[in-house]
Design a protein around this nucleic acid. Structure first.
Lengths: 335, 335
DNA sequence: CTGAAAGCGCTTACAG
DNA sequence: CTGAAAGCGCTTACAG
């Protein structure tokens, strides 16, 4: 790979001059020299070495995104949003999966520090452990989190509680009395918010709190399937609200296998509105979150944070209940 | 962030010595000195700067993975495999989406060269355009592709043709006469292989080639839905083979909406076996590809390629037909 | 307008 | 066993 030195030699100028034309430095460069340099650059197909530049400038145009698992469509969609925004600003993203394991989080943070990442976006899992925080060091001022965290980082917040309430109220309005809930692991703040939404709604309407009707899953379709089977057999709910679409799919699958019709014998609501939930059979009633935009917003906040301008501390996203056939029998267009 | 200089000063040694203990250099370091250095390192929570190291060593322990779209579960699963293997070897991965756009591919390649990536994994799309190849430059020896390409890169190959043949034969054996096919864009070699498998199987059994029965989609559920609707109305197939699971979901959704029962009135087969296809209703008959292992294998090959050892040029993955309820009415466990 | 020089944080031959 | 020095490829004040 050609270096700035090669270009300088070819164009018969100093490397300083080459640097100036490469970076469109405000420093004036004579038209003729610029042309010579540009030609040499083209000749070599020269690209400045980002490592050298990063080392000197203490800016790498690289950020890390730490998520539980990219194979979960929820995170994949967020990452896509982050990615597209990062592209626009010329940032590269380093993707890191944690499987919600604290040690891996810490290892990833160290890794990002070694690589001189300019910032970090966190989504999923809890990052307020003392060890996690202290491992952040100089990066601690360059963190944006998605979701609510005890620590006061700039954050993109999704109205999970409100969304879960809407979903539950919807089931109540359809006259369901025994509404089961399939939640996520305690490590997921998102999942915890969704349970509270569910409970809030029940309390508000004077429902008895019936803890046999709730289960904790791991947010996979498989877990939704297994827990729904159990719930159906033991508790005979007439409706199930699952903390995400994947588990809702599993629940519907379990219902069908148990000979129940959806929604007639069992209504099911999900959460997230992942890309294909409107193509499920029946189309899934769910709570929509604009994951893509959440990711994009997080990246935008991080860019501003790094540039130290516009110290926006919070971005709030509302949710929207999408009623489809898994709860109500009416025809709706696909979205 | 503390530098090697800080550590050296604190431990009263030269930076060379610090470097030696950090890197477990074979060069002998006295026990006592080593201890002093280790203490200083712990004191500062020192991490070597990867940029400086990379610049010097011409090795960054970073690779790029270029895919069409991370929000497609197929690629997400591959990326997860790449990721886990990369973790094991201490590599970071830079994720880049192309949306199958040639210009973006080229931009991404330049980007990776600037960042001094040690290698590239390509999946999806065609990379044999002259412009793409020449943009690779010094990286051209550090490329592993997933899927078949005209250019002779080390590759992980999936038996798409064979898988598509098995799927089609399965439908033929169920006595279907009008078997529709919903494929992917021409830019996808994978999709093209799957059409050929379909055609091969038909020809083998002496079926007339009926091009009205085939459609080209874009591999999303939405596109499967739209094309299946059209196919159902115009061509009245009794079975549809979709080039991926997402489109198969869309097709089933369209069938139900058109009042057709699946599999009785319309049998549907997908391809990929993405995580939740066994939780679809009905569970989807599909061709399984071990995406995760494909990703992991690609990363392993790239690591070896970079280390210049074990010049494995090809890794072959077989596919497996999973018969579930969308084609045959028999009870099967979930997987 | 242009260039020589310092320096970002490392590793490794070389000398002692 | 340990250290001084060179050098990876850049940018930017400083001098001319």
């Amino acid at each position: 790979m050609a270096t700035i030195r090669d270009v300088a030699r070819k164009a018969n100028v100093s490397i300083a001059t080459v640097s100036r034309v490469v970076n469109n430095n405000p420093h004036k460069v004579n038209q003729a020299t610029r042309k010579k340099v540009l030609e040499a650059i083209r000749g070599f197909d020269y690209r400045p070495n980002a490592l050298a530049k990063g080392l000197l400038m203490k800016k790498t145009m690289t950020i890390g995104i730490i998520i539980p698992d990219i194979s979960n469509p929820y995170y994949a969609e967020i990452v896509r949003g982050v990615q597209d925004m990062a592209d626009q600003y010329g940032y590269a993203i380093l993707l890191l999966n944690t499987d919600r394991n604290q040690d891996r989080i810490i290892r990833h943070i160290y890794f990002l520090r070694e690589k001189s990442a300019d910032g970090i976006i966190f989504s999923g899992g809890i990052i307020h452990g003392e060890k996690v925080l202290s491992s952040l060091k100089e990066l601690i001022e360059r963190v944006v989190v998605i979701g609510r965290h005890k620590v006061d980082f700039p954050a993109v917040i999704i109205d999970n509680v409100g969304g879960a309430m809407k979903a539950t109220q919807h089931l109540i309005e359809l006259n369901h009395k025994r509404i089961g809930f399939i939640g996520g692991p305690d490590k997921s703040t998102t999942a915890k918010e969704r349970v509270s939404g569910y409970k809030n709604a029940l309390i508000q309407r004077g429902y008895p709190m019936n803890s046999e009707l709730t289960r904790k899953g791991d947010l996979t379709a498989r877990s939704g399937y297994l827990l729904a089977k159990e719930l159906i057999q033991k508790e005979k709910p007439t409706a199930i609200f699952a903390a995400n679409d994947l588990m809702a799919f599993g629940a519907i699958s379990a219902a069908k296998e148990s000979g129940l019709r959806v929604p007639e014998d069992l209504a099911v609501v999900g959460f997230d509105n992942i890309l294909f939930s409107s193509y499920y059979v029946p189309p899934l009633t769910t709570v929509e979150i604009p994951m893509y935009h959440v990711g994009a917003a997080a990246m935008e906040m991080l860019v501003n944070l790094i540039a130290k301008k516009n110290a926006e501390k919070l971005r709030w996203f509302d949710t929207r209940l999408l009623v489809r056939d898994s709860t109500a029998k009416r025809k709706l267009g696909k979205e």
